[in-house]
Write a protein that binds this DNA or RNA. Structure first.
Lengths: 221, 221
DNA sequence: GATACCATTTTGGGATACCAAGCCGGTATC
DNA sequence: GATACCGGCTTGGTATCCCAAAATGGTATC
């Protein structure tokens, strides 16, 4: 793999994995030495990550994008629009076998599964559901939205019960899709997204002090 | 303005203005000499334009993105989802004064207005309508979709009547928004988008030979 | 005449040198 | 002691150089 894609990938993982905190300043020289690459691939990576919303300009200079509660709420509205549209398309397909694969993915998580895996699968559920629609733009929109939400969802304090509820909602959505009931599937998905948003925003809002203590920038709604 | 933004802006205008044809190969060195910039800003511009879908990689190397009929159809579905969502938000606002500004924009076009202006205003109608929703992500989605559609819409052979019909539909949509009738506004907007798509795709499909003759790459649906 | 092969050129990817602007610290003056 | 000013240092922006790989074109061979 070329150095350019490598820097981009590694830096993205560092940001998503919170190894560099939201709001932290980034210098091209630091990234350069950190990954042993020169500034050309570093700049390419930063430009790409900027379009993904993971880094942003800070006057002259770069910052890891802060967690923005207002943005999270706007993304939820956006997600709802594109995910529901994708879901309706999927329900209209003759071949809905992708649903089985997605369901298997959900079922691969059990009590012994590490938290990161639950986190990843929880996002992939939505991403793969969108991919199944066959519409590249809806798919990308959902994938990008989930990327933007990723860090916030990771920081969310979730109890076992909340996780179980989310999984039950995921299964219920798939069930409606399998039955080809687009209206019901859309209703369930919308409710799931709105519920997720509320839990996420209140969790982060309540824990704001703790997050700030960890050096994470959280800008209020 | 910095050289970097300059190259990006100028190159984007060349592409959108069809001064470089869809499917044409681009070399970094040509862009460099064309705009009197060095390769660093040229690369930054290409990376940005790639995410906008205006240029794409061609193995090693760059090409101006071809007109892709399948993509145009997918974008129409995507547009419908995000534009309708934005419209519903706008209808729910107390302050819908943006509608008046948008209407004035439409009315600024008359018989003496050059075609480029009709073209621009026709896109801005949708973009500004999305912006009025206040949701940054829906707005960006619409703007990006319109950018991707821009060249195809420019190549579309449109008669006076079709343009008049589009304007009438625009006005009808605004009327419903002003009345706060979200359901009716959504219906009209959906119909408008679907109609636009059909006219666009059939027009380009019929004119495919002519476009190829002008050296424009058009990949079929 | 077609084709396979080799030299040359072109091209994008990467590295590095240079510059101007902004930030920070120190110092001198009041 | 506070503040204004100055100089060095850091940083992103730009230009340029180098390299490997791929395209190109010409030639020799069959």
């Amino acid at each position: 793999m070329s150095q350019m894609q490598n820097v981009e990938k590694q830096l993205r993982e560092m940001i998503l994995g919170l190894e560099v905190g939201p709001g932290e300043r980034l210098t091209e020289r630091w990234i350069e030495s950190r990954f042993g690459a020169s500034r050309t691939p570093v700049r390419a990576a930063l430009l790409r990550l900027e379009t993904e919303g993971l880094v942003c300009r800070d006057g002259r200079g770069w910052t890891v994008s802060p967690i923005n509660l207002a943005e999270l709420e706007q993304i939820a509205v956006y997600r709802e629009a594109v995910e529901v549209a994708a879901l309706r398309l999927t329900c209209a397909l003759e071949d809905r076998s992708a649903v089985d694969i997605i369901e298997a993915m959900l079922d691969s998580c059990d009590a012994g599964t590490p938290r990161e895996e639950w986190h990843r699968v929880g996002m992939d559920f939505h991403i793969e559901l969108a991919r199944a629609s066959g519409n590249e733009f809806l798919f990308r929109a959902v994938r990008d939205a989930m990327t933007r939400l990723s860090r916030a969802r990771w920081l969310e304090v979730r109890d076992e019960a909340a996780l179980g509820r989310a999984w039950a909602e995921h299964h219920a959505i798939l069930e409606a899709v399998r039955a080809g009931d687009a209206a019901e599937a859309a209703r369930r998905l919308s409710a799931h997204i709105v519920g997720s948003r509320d839990r996420l925003v209140t969790s982060l809002h309540n824990d704001r002090r703790g997050l700030r203590a960890r050096g994470f920038a959280v800008v209020a709604a």
